[in-house]
Amino acid sequence: MIEEEAGIVFNRQIADKTYHMGLESPRIAAAAKPGQFVMLRVFNGIDPLLRRPLSICRVGGDGIFYLLYRVVGRGTAIMSRAVKGERLSVLGPLGRGFKLPPPGDRSFLVAGGIGIAPLISLSQVVDKDHMAFLVGYRSAAEIIPAEQVGADTSVSIATDDGTAGHRGPVTELLKANVERAGEGRAIVFACGPLPMLKAVAALTSKWNIPCQVSLETSMACGVGACHGCAVKSSSGQKKPYHHVCQDGPVFDADTVDWGRL
């Protein structure tokens, strides 16, 4: 765990309400693994007070790590106005990231909107010949140009309103892809809004395919000190609650009590 001031290398809008930021921190960049996150201090005063959790979207070889974020409130709005050269305090890398599948296994990466962020870094390390990257958006205006944020692979898109790609939920794309792939070992990695994650968890459980999900909760500390980031674990787990910042944010889908999320 490292805490340091990282300089903003760039910060630009790349889709509706969605921004891409590069931060220079060779130590964090060197230590980060796909699926981990940072706690970013977006403001140096006391209001807003707390740090914001953000996934490490990608790491460059140049000591820079990248964030992809959507403006949903005050903290992310402040972030969107930050300019090159400013320095922000970053705490990270934090949490447990994705467990990588053995080479040869088929990987299905499923994102809903901004949930693409942690999956970008994963897409760089899994076997590209056996990978499908599926992303759902509400509408075409939200589409995050994946190649601009470091996904060196093609991405299949679904939109709720049919303005781009497949019309319908991204889980329909997942179904079609899994069916097309046929037999053989496979694994699903998912990040996105809760209803989407629930649907993916239900499908993979039905298919008996392992699934790892990246979860979000409100977080005060990000390091396991406050016990604030609890999610109910499924029966049979050692602890009644997981702590997303330490035990996650990535979990095996069958260890989470989806009915109580």
């Binding site: 909760t217 977080m219 980031c229 609890a230 999610v231 009644p240 609650y241």
Partner: peptide
């Protein structure tokens, strides 16, 4: 175990 989330 603690309270139901959200907790903070």
């Amino acid at each position: 175990a603690g309270n139901r989330p959200p907790r903070t």
